[in-house]
Nucleic acid binder design. Structure first.
Lengths: 364, 364
DNA sequence: TTGAAAGCGCTAACAG
DNA sequence: CTGTTAGCGCTTTCAA
């Protein structure tokens, strides 16, 4: 039971595969001819082409992508650097990104730096060694991160669900402000007048953006914001319950609607309201943010919520990256629209299909 | 603005980087010497080494990994093929896997096939073209999947959190049965005698394994299982609430403990018990499965739960894969131990630190 | 229509 | 101690 050291038994060789030389030999043609036949290049006799293809199939030939890349100076790979420990927001983004890039034959090197700058640098080094054609950086969203150091400035870098100060970089983000406004517009449109906003820690940029959106909608409706109705706390259900205690415990006029900074807060709030004997949405309407099914659907009643359309964000990131690899120069901050999914907590009829609305809002 | 097609502007070249030729030229030595200096190979005059390294730094030289691999016939990459849409169970596994492999300088190609066999095959083809040194397959756990078709049989393949019938393959799974027994042992040890098991759909192998573990523990304690106490339904909070209605609605002697198949069921159950005026854990103890913080910690009271140690599973997968790449032959089904995290729902003092226990249980 | 050869960037064996 | 060279597997001129 030897160690699994670097010099293992017959260690090292990746499964030996047929080379184009083998194919050529078996087909009885030259190596150049074989290449042409396989790449449908140049003019070859149909007979030769068939012969070569047959030989290739026989041998299970698959061209060595590294050798191809070496020649083409195009690796057909990109790096994805994540810092959110692959968190739940990142997943749908990655999924869509992978899907998009795969359609173009581009593979993804996945790296996780867990917020350790040194590991991050190591990963970037590795990726540069692999000659990735582009890099996508993703992170927890609290703060702007320092730009990745890529020498030469020629490699496309996109920050998605993450932001940096580098003016040359492209940052892709959900339109938090617009999404929040969408939610509050909806509450107002369904007759609510005293809308409170219960949200997360103020250090998050998303918190202030969503608050802005909340204010936007109130202003638009001619309602004056009331400072008692803005409550910042943790991103948790417990905070949602506490906030309800604060807002409905007397001392201030109770709101008739709650727009919450995320679904956990909204769920906690909905629970607390029910336990106080207040009906949702009868007495108080509740809207959350994230549209996280596990929370939004399990809540009683199911929560209306703002969806950040992370899948679309991931797809957009893939498309932008491909464009940049193709030579386009893109930079700045691009915010993609959120949508509102209406469920019972804000007055939808039970059992009816959700009717998402969209707001298109681009900032650069 | 033109399409982002394959023939973009100056498309294609990955950021041109200094080659070892450039380094050699700048250092005024031959290309072979430069290579030796950089790889600390052979015997060189210290002066030359310094000169070369300085030149390399000046030029920001980073060896082209594809060229190296081409020569070494070892790509230092592995593929990860997932089918669970990157689901929440897969994340911690991937994280640990990535960490483990990165320590060995191995990079990961991430692919998602979303249960489409055709896309899966495409991805495998791509990966074979990239000459990956190994492959890791992950999936939703309901059923055994058909083995991946890798020609030649020489490439290491590991199925993690996923199982296949191929007797030559290595499958890594959590020890569901042992984990369940751990939970029920704990309930019995803390004085419970009427332990019910509320779990998910019977099609899941995990459901029957956890049921086995439940029976194991009862038997060990000399308690006879009662068929009324076994309830299978959906993996949801709603089912947890329903099950409580069934178990405590009269007609059968109510249990004094609930071992639930996952944390969502457990949370629903805890909610329903509270709403019935039953104290948790005073009247009924509750233990969940998965130790999913979002559920377990947000529940009232916080849930005791079985942790599948997915991080350890991922790390094990990485280590096994490295061993196999090194030439070791591993096969069979390996089940890694779960652990129990005790919180208030099963009688832990409030605010005290959780005391995980471990069971080591390997099956092949 | 096909074959031969150069070269992508690197390493290692062999000369000098 | 250092330089030269063959070759990893492939594509692509350039000849034949």
């Amino acid at each position: 039971m030897g160690g699994s050291g670097d010099k293992g038994v017959e260690a090292g060789a990746y499964p030996a595969r047929a080379t184009i030389r083998d194919v050529a030999a078996r087909a009885g043609v030259s190596i150049g001819t074989a290449s042409k036949a396989l790449n449908a290049n140049g003019r070859l006799k149909q007979d030769t082409i068939d012969k070569v293809i047959a030989a290739a199939n026989d041998l299970g030939f698959r061209p060595n992508a590294m050798a191809q890349s070496l020649h083409r100076t195009r690796s057909m790979t990109v790096g994805v650097l994540t810092n959110d420990s692959f968190g739940r927001f990142i997943f749908p983004i990655l999924e869509a990104l992978e899907e998009t890039l795969a359609e173009h034959g581009i593979a993804i090197f996945m790296c996780n730096a867990t917020d350790d700058p040194q590991r991050e640098q190591q990963h970037v080094d590795q990726l540069l060694g692999k000659r990735i054609d582009g890099l996508l950086v993703t992170a927890r969203r609290m703060d702007r991160r320092p730009p990745i150091a890529v020498p030469g400035k020629s490699m496309p870098v996109i920050y998605v669900f993450s932001q940096t100060d580098d003016p040359d970089a492209l940052c892709l983000l959900p339109d938090d402000r617009g999404g929040a406004a969408l939610a509050v517009d909806h509450l107002i449109a369904t007759g609510r007048r005293r809308v409170a906003h219960v949200t997360g820690p103020t250090e998050f940029e998303a918190v202030s953006l969503r608050y802005q959106g909340y204010l936007d909608a109130l202003t638009r409706a001619g309602l004056s914001p009331q400072s008692d109705y803005y409550r910042s706390g943790a991103w948790s259900e417990a905070w949602g319950r506490d906030a309800v205690a604060q807002l409905f415990g007397g001392g201030i006029e109770p709101p008739d609607a709650l727009f919450c900074g995320n679904d956990q807060i909204a769920r906690g709030a909905a629970d607390a309201l029910r336990e106080r004997g207040l009906a949702v949405p009868g007495d108080v309407a509740v809207v959350g943010f994230d549209n996280w099914d596990v929370m939004a659907l399990a809540a009683r009643p199911p929560l209306s919520s703002v969806d950040m359309n992370l899948h679309a964000l991931g797809r957009a990131a893939g498309e932008r990256l491909i464009a940049m690899i193709g030579g386009e120069r893109l930079a700045g901050v691009e915010r993609l629209p959120c949508s509102l999914v209406v469920r019972q907590s804000s007055g939808e009829e039970p059992q009816s299909a959700p009717a998402p609305k969209f707001q298109t809002n681009k900032t650069s």
